[in-house]
Amino acid sequence: MDGTWDLVRESLVPLLQGTVTGTIPLTAVSFVLGLLLALVVALMRLSGIAPLAAAARCYVSLIRGTPLLLQLFIIFYGLPSLGVTIDPFPSAVIAFSLNVGGYAAEVVRAAILAVPKGQTEAALTIGMDYATTMRRIVLPQAARVAVPPLSNTLISLVKDTSLASAVLVTELTRKANELAAPTYEFFTLYVVTAAYYWVVCLGLSAVQSRLEVRLNRYVAR
């Protein structure tokens, strides 16, 4: 029993390292890139230009219709046979960004559609072009609608990054495996690791609540 507690104590710092240098940057970079991708895909679908809209629909369908682990394997283990070799971390970033992009595109599209048409018209009458109208008028209002579902996407992503352990990224789950393997203390280490994920997600939920309050301040109740 003493040995178990010693192991937990010795694991705390390496697991924290895996979180701070692996899980969190992987999540953050993938989420930001994924959101940008989602915005582009959503605007393509809303563009009214048939080939763009069709390409966007096809992309969303592929991403949502195939397993994330398989997308990761295709990029890391599959692409080298086509002569494209990508390191573990960038491979994971690409796979997760594409995945977030596919799911969040629908959220962003729905949020943009939820902004009344009169807002765009008012923006046009004060001289705004399409890009300025989106940036200054539509997207800030769409954000209010999009934050709760996008927070779901982000929290899912935190946990999905554990899949990156299967393509050799040294993130939290892989660290746990490395620490557990020589000692056979799988139960203890996995429970501690789960607690790390949980704490990260708790923090994100708190941020979400504050963001929602902020974005709702201009809404009548």
Binding site: P116, G118, Q119, E121, A122, A123, T125, I126, I137, P140, Q141, R144, Y218, V219
Partner: peptide, 14 residues
């Protein structure tokens, strides 16, 4: 021209 709308269409976030 400047326009005033029936439903005012003010920007609620500003």
């Amino acid at each position: 021209s400047g326009m005033v709308f029936q439903a005012h269409n003010l920007f609620p976030h500003l």
